[in-house]
């Protein structure tokens, strides 16, 4: 283990370390803590310059309630959910199929096609922007939630395929070969043999894609102008314009937008990190 375990050091240094970790953490999360404090204080505090001291009164419920009452925050949150969940289902399902095809079958197009998915996954969004707008206009789904889902699902299929293919490639190939020798059909092998084995990968991808899509801002601004279909990230940005100088409300709304991915991360931490660090340990 590197660095040397702290337990091997003297008591004084151990104590110093145990003190330093929370201190560094406090500094690291200071912007977040400060904005949380702002979100629970009354507006009058900020006006008189009491931004960091003890709030004159705690208005957690009032401030967050006001965000819901004064704005469409609830609808924005619902829209985000309606965008993130179907995207997650479609892209992970498609990637199970493509990843299986690219990992199991040894045909000459397997590697070039795999690289196509990988490369497409890394292109800058701007090179896709105008044609995607154009396609959405022609399919008459611009400015709608399904329109955004279609694009996200297609794009995320690239990342999911990269992940799935590598995951399936690591499974013991003899399993599939022996099933084939017994005359089991290709789709049955996929459904009954491989799919149960890739459950951890499916879980990791679901968490990741949900978080990615929840936090998406660019595609929502490009593909959706109508207020009724906006997701929370764009909604929060708009609120920032409406609540000029009402920082207690802006910060409450911002934190609200951050809650679901943070919860998702804490509940599914193991899968989340397994997904993000794919490839960080191999070799």
């Amino acid at each position: 283990m590197f660095p040397k375990p702290i337990a091997n050091y003297s008591g004084g240094r151990q104590f110093a370390y145990k003190l330093a970790v929370p201190l560094v953490l406090f500094l690291w999360l200071l912007p977040l803590l400060a904005i949380f404090m702002t979100s629970i204080r009354p507006a009058s505090d900020i006006a008189i310059g009491n931004v960091f001291g003890i709030p004159s009164s705690f208005q957690l419920l009032q401030n967050y309630g006001e965000v819901f009452a004064k704005t469409d925050a609830l609808r924005y949150l619902l829209n985000t959910l309606l965008i993130a969940l179907p995207t997650m289902l479609i892209s992970v399902a498609l990637a199970c199929l493509t990843g299986y095809a690219l990992a199991i079958y040894k045909f000459k197009w397997a590697l070039p096609l795999f690289f196509l998915f990988v490369a497409g996954n890394f292109v800058p969004f701007q090179i896709l922007m105008l044609p995607v707008v154009d396609i959405s206009v022609r399919m008459e789904i611009i400015n709608t939630v399904p329109g955004l889902v279609m694009f996200h699902a297609a794009f995320q299929t690239g990342f999911c395929t990269l992940f799935m293919r590598n995951f399936i490639k690591a499974l013991p190939f003899e399993l599939i070969e022996s099933a084939r020798l017994e005359g089991v059909g290709e789709f049955r092998i996929f459904w009954h043999l491989v799919l149960p084995l890739v459950k951890p990968a499916i879980a990791a991808l679901c968490v990741l894609i949900f978080t990615f899509i929840w936090n998406d801002f660019f595609w929502a601004t490009v593909l959706i102008q109508e207020d009724s279909s906006l997701p929370i990230t764009v909604g929060v940005r708009t609120l920032n314009g409406e609540f000029v100088q009402q920082w207690h409300l802006v910060s409450a709304a911002s934190l609200l937008a951050a809650v679901p991915p943070v919860l998702m991360f804490f509940i599914m931490q193991k899968h989340f990190i397994a997904g993000l660090t794919l490839g960080a340990t191999k070799g």
């Binding site: 953490l25 936090n215 911002s254 937008a257 951050a258 991915p261 943070v262 991360f265």
Partner: peptide
């Protein structure tokens, strides 16, 4: 410590 990565960049920007 990992927290900031999970939050949307829009929110980080506002913060």
């Amino acid at each position: 410590f990992f927290f900031p990565f999970v939050i949307s960049q829009v929110v980080v920007g506002l913060i």
